[in-house]
Write a protein that binds this DNA or RNA. Structure first.
Lengths: 201, 201, 201, 201
DNA sequence: AATGAATGAGTGTTCATTCAT
DNA sequence: AATGAATGAACACTCATTCAT
């Protein structure tokens, strides 16, 4: 069942905006560019979004809502946590963050200019949710004995910083080796060891 | 020995630009704002910098040169590396990155928009230098036995990502507790354990 | 007998346009505003009026046609003119002008921008008609002896200017006292005296 | 002594704006038009006036200040008022109003759209000043016996309305006869008689 | 007949840059 | 060396108008 015509168009505009905002920042991105990328006239952008800022805000908020949804859904699976399951979750986090370059660049853009985009609070909400979620994991892991003694709050802060940094420090030029590097390093943040090279043999 | 008058003025402009570019990004920052912040007329900015982009490029390059210098100097101290010395180095890295919010926000700004600022390659040079430096540390640490078996390249990638993420993911509030968190988590990336809470007793 | 459905709608649009054009001028008034005021969709406006200018022209012409009709009807009553009857006519003029603020604001708008609305000549026709009508009155009044010697043309010009000015110089507050002021002053333009304050006793 | 270069330019822009605003109204007049009329680039307009509205407001206020100044200066001459002197004053008023078509069209524009230009109060101030001034004249004239019994307030309201209407009801197409018509009619508003045609003989 | 999504010409305004002083 | 008036390219945004439904 296809989306109604107009919803499709709104989504095209959103996707174009996401791409261009993440790539060029807010000011450098023009409505004209977004319209061209979306294949519509620039006037049409204003049919769906009140103004440039509203469109940008949507580009920040919508992905964050999705992230929050993912976290909330994964929370349910924490009941019978094992080391293997945790490693699985970590890999999923990395996949999510690595796939979300566009979204996270925009988020980073907002973090760096808090005065300019002060009205956006979905970001704070996500951070709080994520940190609480990691703390819960660390607590459970320590209780069950497969994680060493750690300060759960510290792990949370460090892990989120690491995920963000992993995604945003490097440009996307075919870094196949990154996956393994980041996975192993993420394990270490929780006090777990990753696969060593010689285990491949 | 004071700087010559004009050099002082050029530096005022640079500092003003660094502050405003890091805070508002490239496009939102106007030459007029920079001039006002520096206490000069906006015409004077063009006396010292050919145009806005040259001034921005300077704000990216000059800090990176400094970073490279710091790394190169620390390299000499790696000869008789011990676990304590490494922890010391790590803490210094964190201090350096935490103090350099303005500089790193601008760097991040450039990383996120590689097409727009493609002519800036001081960044790549720094990354290569830094990664090589970390790899050297890990090799030495494994040889001397105070670091567990690791892939030195992976540690480098992960550690740099972590440093960047630690600085750029959080706005500057309540950082006192961050220091400890980031220190301990950084140790873990190298396979070392940090201080546990109960060690304070 | 109600108007046919569509005629009613056209009239709603006309009234909305009259109100908004007179209040905000031509450019500031949008078709969307008019449609909202009339309770129709903005597309409907174009069903009844070819474009914005045609609607505006209608707002100028229709009231002027009505004014002309009123004048023409009053002309018949001029046969047995007396001073009392003239004063009555003057009061009616003032009432008509005072009630027609919206219409006259638009007329004034057109007078002030003759190049812009050059195609509208109902205005000139009305002025010629009105001046001739006043001249006839003055002639008759002088013949019958209740008006002093006057230049009928001069009285016409002055009287029309006065009526326009009386309506358009003041915003609509505290008009109760205006009525008396304008009535008495209008009498004077014809060389008649109005009621004095002490005549109320 | 010529004005400094920039003041001259500011005045050129002002005059261009006065002409175009009075001729086309606020919205129809574009900054580009004003700049062209003033012989400068449109960017220059913003060097001297913060925005379009500020320039328009200046076009309303500056003439009104001048009008107020004229009235205040004429007030001093009221001490030994005679009928001849009053007639002289009236002719001067008419001259002033007739010469000020541009200025008064703008004033009328503001009167007609009070909501839109609510912050402009120089207009009310002028009206109050003018009415008070006329009342003083009428009082004096009645005392000295050359004006008939009148309500001074009524004369003030009517006279101002007449002056405005005289100027704004007719376009400026060489109406030499207007002068005489308006003069005589203005006298009548004060209860005086003008020259009759046969007096020319 | 009625609607409103789509369009793009045209607007006010910003701001980097030039250059005469 | 320092200034800031002048410029005009480029932008976000508005709105009359068209036209498919």
């Amino acid at each position: 069942m296809a989306k109604p015509r107009s919803e499709q168009k709104k989504d095209d505009i959103f996707k174009a905006a996401l791409k261009l905002f993440s790539h060029n920042g807010f000011s450098k991105t023009t409505i004209k560019d977004i319209a061209a990328e979306a294949g519509v006239s620039f006037g049409t952008v204003f049919t769906y979004y009140e103004n440039k800022e509203a469109l940008f805000t949507e580009c920040v908020n919508r992905p964050l809502q999705l992230f929050k949804k993912v976290i909330n859904e994964t929370k349910k699976e924490l009941t019978d946590l094992t080391e293997e399951k945790l490693k699985d979750i970590i890999r999923k986090h990395l996949d999510l963050f690595m796939e979300s370059e566009k979204e996270l660049r925009i988020v980073q853009y907002v973090i760096g200019q808090p005065d300019r985009f002060s009205e956006i609070n979905a970001l704070d909400e996500f951070v709080v949710l994520f940190l609480g979620y990691i703390q819960e994991i660390v607590h459970t892991g320590m209780e069950k004995g497969f994680l060493p003694k750690s300060n759960p709050e510290e792990v949370g802060y460090g892990y989120l910083a690491f995920l963000m940094g992993a995604r945003l420090t490097y440009s996307d030029q075919a870094y196949p080796m990154f996956t393994r590097a980041f996975t192993n390093q993420a394990y270490r943040l929780f006090g777990m060891e990753g696969k060593r090279d010689d285990e491949n043999i």
